[in-house]
Design a protein around this nucleic acid. Structure first.
Length: 228
DNA sequence: ACCCAGGGCGTTG
DNA sequence: CAACGCCATGGG
């Protein structure tokens, strides 16, 4: 009911606490895409090493990766966990990238957001979160990214159920927030920061241990609190 | 010596 | 469609 106001309020509090995260800077949109694939279920520090290796090899470019065997790519991204699978995923994406858009990010970004999402989801190895990350952070599409932290944190506040689908959660955020790429971009960054650095240390906390959020919301959502 | 990271797929029941 | 196994490094 009040998600409409509160989701924006929470964001404002997060910004005032932590400032903007300037997320996923990456030297290029293509690098952002590779990062999005590599970061599946692994910490970003592991990914950074893999990206650095690819750069040092001089193969963090569409054409280069297109030519390399998956096996060789894998040997440079070992730190990213599941490296054999991820090498294949990268190959799958790059193949699609040339097939569909001649390896041109600009061309890909001109595609209609909805159809592009559908196409990207057709690539084996790219699921909803990875695809939406690509859409938002590499193609500047106004798409809200949902991840495990989003579900965990906001189900504890009672905004969503723990077993809500990805789309349910995404729709709630996108209906409640102004359609603003910068906002979507930074909100997801704030959530990840929060999840990694704060909620992680209190794994089963019901409320996020930021006082101001609790002060503003606790009274309203206390009744909906789930007892662990 | 554990445990779990910013997932996704294939296989069951 | 849920639940679960699989993938297989590095930091705490």
């Amino acid at each position: 009911m009040e998600a409409h106001d509160n989701l924006l309020l929470i964001y404002k509090i997060l910004v005032s606490e932590y400032n903007h995260q300037n997320w996923w800077p990456g030297d290029s949109p293509f690098e952002v895409i590779i990062g999005a694939i590599l970061t599946q279920s692994v910490s970003w520090t592991n990914v950074e090493k893999a990206i650095k290796n690819l750069k040092n090899e001089g193969i963090l470019e569409p054409e280069k990766l297109h030519k390399k065997e998956a096996g060789e790519i894998a040997s440079h991204i070992k730190s990213s966990l599941y490296y054999n699978q991820k090498a294949i995923k990268i190959k799958n994406f790059v193949h699609f990238f040339f097939q569909e858009f001649e390896g041109n990010i600009q061309k890909m970004s001109e595609e209609n957001s909805k159809t592009l999402r559908k196409k990207l989801l057709g690539i084996k190895g790219l699921g909803e979160e990875t695809v939406d990350s690509i859409l938002l952070y590499a193609c500047d599409k106004p798409v809200f990214v949902v991840d495990a932290y989003t579900r965990r944190i906001f189900s504890r506040y009672g905004f969503v159920k723990e077993d809500s689908t990805y789309r349910d959660i995404q729709t709630l955020f996108m209906k409640s927030l102004p359609k603003d790429i910068r906002l979507y971009n930074d909100y997801h960054a704030q959530i990840v920061y929060l999840g990694k650095n704060i909620c992680k240390t209190v794994p089963r906390c019901t409320f996020c241990p930021i006082r101001e959020i609790n002060d503003n919301l606790k009274c309203r959502y206390y009744a909906m609190r789930k007892t662990p």
